[in-house]
Amino acid sequence: MKDLHLPLVAITMGDPVGIGPEIISKALCDPRIKNCCQPVVYGDARRLKAGALLAPMDRAVEEIASIHDARCDAHTLCVVNPHPVDTDNLAWGHPSAASGAAMAAYLEAAIDDALAGRISAIATGPINKYALKMANIHFNGHTEILAHRTGTQKYAMMLAGPRLKVVLATIHIRLKQVSKALSEEMITTVIALTDAALKTRFGLASPRIAVAGLNPHAGESGLFGDEETRVIAPAIESSASQGILASGPHPPDTIFYRASQGEFDAVVAMYHDQGLGPFKMVHFDDGVNTTLGLPIIRTSVDHGTAYDIAGKGIASAESMVAAITMAAGQARCLNRQKDQASI
């Protein structure tokens, strides 16, 4: 490896028939990646080379069976392939049981190496829930697989960018189920996960966390709903009693703007689209999904497999670049804190 001081970041390919091979190839040519980490791709070398035909790389590709075999330098990229498949039968934009099994195997190998301390962080390429099910893998996505493989019970999704960070209290559930799903304990847990991540992974000594209300105008004293007074406000009070700088419930129509202007370091949103709508207005191209609460560092692109444009050479790599650089940044921040604790 070229620089032992740079964190070793695993980049999982995602679905090999999606845009993952292309955006990884593009990202690895970006100077921001070369200066922040030592990248190792977990995927298929032939698919990566096919992606590189769409976005030429400036280094050779060497496929290896295990991270233990990595002997790559600045001119050679190592590709760990724990699940070789017949790539001749893979077509861009056409997921299959084979591509679904491969994408899961790439992720699981990276998780195992992260848990063993052989890599510093994971940046994941896009996977597809339908392809997972075709491969008889019954998880809804990355987060669920990561939580299962790491034995994590309490975790949360953060969408992060330079101007705005949003954490979701509930994720992929029906809108009519949100109110019933919210509880004081759950919101308190999400606030605590947010506070811990901002301190340990982003280096903020005293992070300011805004908590959005569920209803218009944050309920307006119960006129538009009682979730704010019944569960959200008590969770904020409980968090504040633990020394966390949490405030709210704030009206959802203004709090994301205030946070994007620097008034807060993160916003806890009550449901998926409440948080992701404002976030993607600000960070559509460079947003990153990072999982809080895991014992390992994981970031991801904030988009899907984009089968409709796979193989066309037009996919943007900005979110992939952002995910890799954020993973490396979190690893460096964590290492600094470990060094300081050992002094």
Rank of each mutant, 00 (worst) to 15 (best):
V211G: 00
I244M: 02
P278A: 10
I137T: 11
L53P: 00
Q274E: 03
L182T: 01
G222A: 05
G277L: 13
S238P: 02
P56A: 06
L223S: 14
K165T: 06
L6D: 00
D286L: 09
G262W: 03
L4C: 05
I324F: 07
P295S: 04
L146C: 08
A110L: 05
V79H: 06
T305V: 12
V17C: 15
T87H: 12
Q38K: 12
D285M: 11
L6A: 03
P31T: 10
A181L: 01
I137H: 08
S221A: 14
K34I: 11
A323L: 10
S183T: 15
A323I: 12
S96W: 04
Q38G: 03
L292A: 05
P7S: 14
P31L: 10
I209E: 00
G219L: 08
L245N: 10
V301F: 11
Y130G: 06
F202D: 04
N128C: 15
C36W: 03
L132E: 11
M103T: 15
I244F: 02
H250R: 00
T170E: 03
E220F: 05
R174G: 15
L4M: 12
D73C: 08
A74M: 06
M320Q: 08
P252I: 08
S179M: 04
Q274K: 04
R46F: 14
R332T: 15
M13V: 10
M158D: 04
D302S: 04
V40Y: 03
V190K: 15
T254K: 00
V267Q: 02
G262Q: 01
N136Y: 11
S260E: 03
S99M: 02
M326T: 13
L107T: 06
H68N: 13
T143R: 11
A114I: 15
P84S: 11
D3I: 14
A328F: 03
A328S: 10
P216H: 12
R298L: 13
H142E: 07
A322Q: 05
A341H: 15
A323S: 15
V85N: 08
H148R: 10
K34M: 13
A181C: 10
D226N: 15
Q330K: 07
L4N: 12
Y155M: 15
C36F: 04
T124G: 12
M1E: 01
L28Y: 03
L6Y: 01
A197V: 03
W92Q: 07
T254M: 00
D285R: 12
V41W: 09
A27L: 10
V79Q: 05
A45H: 05
T194E: 04
I24M: 09
A323M: 12
T152I: 11
G141C: 08
S239R: 09
I324W: 04
A269R: 01
H5G: 08
S319R: 04
I343Y: 04
V41Y: 07
R230G: 02
A10Q: 13
V166L: 02
L48S: 13
V61P: 05
H283N: 03
